[in-house]
């Protein structure tokens, strides 16, 4: 039982990371229908920025987190302008390959500059552990930071999307790009904002993961990137609460599967869940069914 509770605690932390990344995927997909394969690499860059700030410039947790979010959001906007904008009218497959090219470029570009070696994050959070309900299951201060930061960012995102003009524009473009342009919405600006916000969330996830697992390397983004995308698809791509649900669901499932002795197969389980969800509800759990008009 203790073991189980411990796994749930760990699962929620992992799920927070997935959820933060899944939000970026789902927003970008919602607005330009592109699976942004480079999203995992933005997360990796975020982790490295956080590492550099805390290690070399002695930043504390929050300054490092915020600066890293700002820099990754810039990176996201630049990627969109340079790589994706020219592909807006080309085929889906060409756009997808472009996204994969960007992802490779960032992975191996980073590897060239910082070498492939794994680096470890400094301990910038106090070492506090709380035992849960008098059992041996412990909640580390890092678990609390991760969950709190995630929740705060999600509330902020909800506010931006539902209460601001930019958020309204983002929702409008996601529903019908052409119509929103006719209504005077600046499509380019809206897409840039979407990339900025999505990338900032990925950057935050990168810093959090660095703090949580301590180790980072240039290829760290690939697998979590895919997982976060799976989370977004499970929840229903383009649906923001869906991405959050998918992220936590996947994080918890994964840790539970590991705890049950299936750690070697945990990645396979994620993909199996994905295929299962797609077969039962092709538009995801929170997605709405759409049918082509004949």
């Amino acid at each position: 039982m203790e073991h189980f509770i411990q796994q749930i605690v760990n699962g929620i932390s992992l799920g927070s990371i997935y959820a933060l990344m899944a939000l970026g995927y789902t927003m970008v997909y919602g607005i330009i229908k592109l699976i942004n394969f480079a999203h995992g690499e933005i997360y990796m860059v975020g982790a490295y920025i956080g590492y550099a700030l805390t290690t070399f410039f002695n930043f504390g947790f929050f300054p490092a987190l915020i600066l890293s979010m700002i820099l990754t959001s810039l990176l996201g906007v630049v990627i969109e302008k340079v790589a994706y904008k020219p592909m807006r009218n080309s085929t889906r497959i060409a756009a997808l390959i472009t996204a994969i090219a960007v992802s490779m470029f960032l992975q191996y570009g980073m590897m060239y500059f910082v070498t492939p070696q794994t680096r470890s994050y400094p301990n910038i959070l106090p070492d506090i552990q709380v035992s849960l309900f008098g059992t041996n299951a412990v909640v580390d201060i890092r678990n609390i930071y991760i969950l709190t930061v995630t929740i705060v960012l999600m509330l902020l995102l909800q506010y931006v999307i539902h209460k601001t003009k930019t958020g309204k524009a983002m929702r409008a473009v996601a529903l019908d790009g052409d119509a929103s342009q006719l209504m005077g919405i600046d499509m380019n600006k809206t897409i840039s904002y979407t990339f900025a916000i999505g990338s900032a969330l990925a950057g935050a996830a990168g810093v959090l993961v660095g703090i949580y697992y301590n180790t980072i390397n240039p290829l760290m983004g690939a697998v979590p990137g895919l997982k976060a995308f799976i989370a977004a698809v499970i929840g229903g791509i383009g649906v923001i609460p869906g991405a959050v649900f998918g992220g936590f669901f996947l994080g918890v499932t994964e840790t539970v599967v590991s705890a049950l002795g299936g750690s070697l197969y945990k990645d396979a389980v994620a993909f199996a869940i994905l295929i299962l969800v797609l077969l039962i509800k092709p538009n995801g759990i929170f997605g709405s069914n759409q049918r082509e008009k004949v």
Binding site: I100, A101, G109
Partner: peptide, 11 residues
């Protein structure tokens, strides 16, 4: 730089 160049060529 092999993979970096390959990525640029792809793009």
């Amino acid at each position: 730089l092999r993979m970096v160049i390959y990525a640029v060529i792809l793009f």
